[in-house]
Design a protein around this nucleic acid. Structure first.
Lengths: 221, 221
DNA sequence: GACCTATGTTACTTACCGGTAACATCCAGA
DNA sequence: TCTGGATGTTACCGGTAAGTAACATAGGTC
């Protein structure tokens, strides 16, 4: 709308004077759908709106995707692919240093998509909005979230931290919670100090604390 | 459907032989709507379905509620009223013992609505599903969640715990996260040990730990 | 019995949306 | 230049859902 975009010929667009190749319709559709779905939810976005935002029409959309649901799944798939890529890059940057890798990751997820305009975790939102447990997207969401958690557990274990599963679960819960809070209590709420909380958690689980009664603990002073 | 319910006269229903007064249509509608909305989401439930589940029809529904959106708000309002009532009862049961009150509350929220069939926090879900920030329900949701958090902070402070705001935020995030996780990684996931985590959090903040560098901390042993 | 109010019943309007059909167009490659 | 595959255009179908109108019914009150 605001950015002036002149269609020159198929496959190219002139944006502010520079000539740049335009991705094929399929990719444009996914990009547009991801943006619209994330901002407004699946139910509020019609296929017509997606097609228009992608600079194409409903017919080509249906030539590339069997149905709206199939498009939804494809959007989530692309999202997770990017997420995994980011994780892999983080791992490559801290090869041989699992704890550094973990901290880098926490810093990443602790700051990612936490501004006021964001709408939280796209996957979690999708699970809420697609209430039917048999929806094709639900299986995918469950797999991804579980894989995410497993990866976190593995990392905590490699970092030789105490009670890796418990730590990973704490981290997981806080991250999920932070993204949910965004939409109800705002970005300045509990989510603001997320990174610090996560780092403190890791620090606590780095202490070599001998086995003790769980849940109730005598003050140590 | 399964329970045989015989309509006798207005205001009464015979259920398995016992005669019991029937609540007025308005309350029945709210009850039915709350159940259906929670299980399937706002978009998936039509007003006809609500009216039928309430044992009435669409017209009476619209005689009591201006619109579907108004009904949604009323449902959330009733929900929060019950929630506050539970909190007040908890406070009354532990009068003069803020820490006991806090622990009781944590035990309550840590076990409430966390079974596999549940769909998480109705308020948070509503915020996700009603993506329009101008929706009449959104203001209400934000108020309630903020009030909830404030009450938690106050309780932590009265319990004389260290860094009450930080503790309350941690608790808040974990509770929110647990309910969200339900829908993606299941009830046997990170949410399973929520109560223990919350209790451990309180125990940590009960330790009289002098001011120290935050985030990075030397092992203590 | 007359009356009033709350409720039930039916049918309807309006609108949106997912999905499809038929045809026009355009571009690449031979 | 011809041709074929991908894309654009238009119109349409069928279903669903929010909300309304008009009328029928029943119960309580005087």
């Amino acid at each position: 709308m605001s950015m002036e975009k002149t269609k020159i010929a198929t496959g190219e667009t002139r944006v502010k004077g520079t000539l740049q190749p335009e991705p094929p319709p399929r990719e444009r559709i996914i990009a547009a759908a991801r943006d619209l779905f994330y901002r407004h939810g699946f139910h509020m976005v019609g296929v017509d709106a997606i097609a228009e935002a992608a600079g194409t029409n409903k017919m080509t959309l249906y030539r590339h995707f069997e149905s709206k649901d199939a498009l939804i799944v494809e959007c989530l798939r692309g999202l997770c692919a990017e997420f995994d890529t980011a994780w892999d890059e983080m791992a490559a940057a801290h090869r041989g240093d699992p704890k550094g890798q973990l901290l880098a990751w926490l810093r990443h997820v602790g700051e990612w998509k936490l501004s006021a305009s964001d709408r939280g975790c796209a996957l979690a939102n999708a699970a809420v909005e697609l209430s039917d447990k048999d929806h094709p997207a639900r299986r995918f969401i469950d797999e991804q979230k579980t894989a995410h958690r497993d990866r976190l557990v593995r990392l905590c274990r490699e970092a030789k931290l105490r009670e890796p599963e418990l730590l990973a679960d704490k981290v997981f819960l806080m991250c999920e919670g932070a993204r949910v809070c965004l939409q109800s209590v705002g970005a300045k709420g509990p989510a603001a100090r997320l990174v610090a909380m996560l780092q403190a958690l890791v620090a606590e689980h780095a202490e070599a604390r001998p086995r003790e009664a769980r849940g109730k603990r005598a003050p140590r002073h």
